[in-house]
Design a binder for these strands. Structure first.
Length: 289
DNA sequence: CAGATGCCCTGGGCGC
DNA sequence: TGCGCCCAGGGCATCT
């Protein structure tokens, strides 16, 4: 469930808390979390992650779409993806009680421990070397070169969005969730963005006129920025938590997501829920006509 | 080749 | 009380 606002909240907290710290030891107890290394024989894929992290200093924390990028001294990057139920929790001590479904523990020389917790195991992490030329859209991370626009980057303006939209007949809802098109938006924020932009979920990308593209771009920036300011959305089921285990606040500001049958906060019309590509979508049939 | 579909995975909620 | 079904969904493989 963590989308861009939740990952960005985590990035800012991590930047303030682990930059400058040196990693002492790494313990991997969930093999699926390091599945990108394959089912290596011998000491196992967990040992590959450990050898990439142990002894390294965290020199910066970045983000690309829904991926966290922990930059390490020497040039490598520890890439972390939370999937839908992943959490990164910072424990003051390695002795602190461990949450269920803790798959990776990264301890620092000062005694603190960063823990990757993920009940549904869609999340993963790995260490990779950033490419020299910076080609592609992955901020130099070769595995992320396929990612599309960074929504809050200056490079995404109405003109570029219009050009990209003009090239596809796909519906706006799946398009906003498509990481190759635009990175970081998922099921929750796509619904909130389309409501703010007063656009129907099934409008083909190429059907938007200029004013509508401008509304969509403005809504992307507005909704994601407001959600970051509120430290993300925590829902009842998947329980997004920040680095300190605290919930976010943006779920209180949702205008359509999970509000089926309740009145639209703009016009009072009951919010409608439909299934799009196997997933729930919420919209106002009047505002988004 | 663009676009659509299904699968992976597990905890929690709900109906019977 | 207990069992089983269904849902949540990001990313990728595999279809049309």
């Amino acid at each position: 469930m963590p989308e861009l606002p939740e990952v960005e909240t985590l990035r800012r907290d991590l930047e303030a808390s682990i930059v400058g710290r040196r990693i002492e030891a790494v313990a991997v107890t969930g093999a699926r979390t390091v599945r990108r290394y394959g089912l290596a024989s011998g000491s196992g894929p967990g040992a590959v992650l450990a050898s990439g992290l142990e002894g390294r200093v965290v020199v910066g924390v970045g983000r690309r779409g829904k991926y966290l990028l922990c930059h390490l001294g020497g040039g490598d990057v520890w890439v972390v993806h939370l999937g839908m139920s992943g959490q990164l929790l910072l424990a003051r001590s390695t002795l602190d009680v461990e949450a269920p479904h803790t798959h990776v523990r990264v301890s620092f020389f000062d005694g603190a421990e960063l823990r990757f917790v993920d009940p549904r195991t869609f999340g993963e992490c790995w260490v990779t070397r950033v490419g020299g030329d910076g080609g592609g859209g992955g901020d130099g991370v070769p595995e992320l070169a396929h990612l599309g626009f960074e929504p809050l980057d200056e490079a995404l303006n109405p003109s570029r969005l219009a050009d990209a939209l003009a090239r596809t007949r796909r519906a706006l809802k799946p398009l906003l969730c498509e990481q190759r098109f635009i990175a970081g938006i998922g099921n929750i924020y796509s619904d909130e963005i389309l409501h703010a932009a007063r656009l129907r979920w099934d409008r083909p990308g190429s059907s938007l006129v200029h004013a509508e593209v401008c509304r969509l771009h403005a809504s992307i920036v507005e909704i994601l920025t407001a959600a970051i300011d509120a430290r993300g959305s925590s829902l009842a089921d998947s329980q997004y938590r920040d680095l300190e285990g605290q919930v976010g606040g943006y779920q209180l500001a949702h205008r359509v997501y999970a509000r089926e049958g309740r009145p639209c906060l703009v016009c009072g019309t009951p919010i409608v829920r439909i299934r799009v590509a196997g997933r729930s979508s919420f919209f106002c049939p009047r505002c988004q006509a």
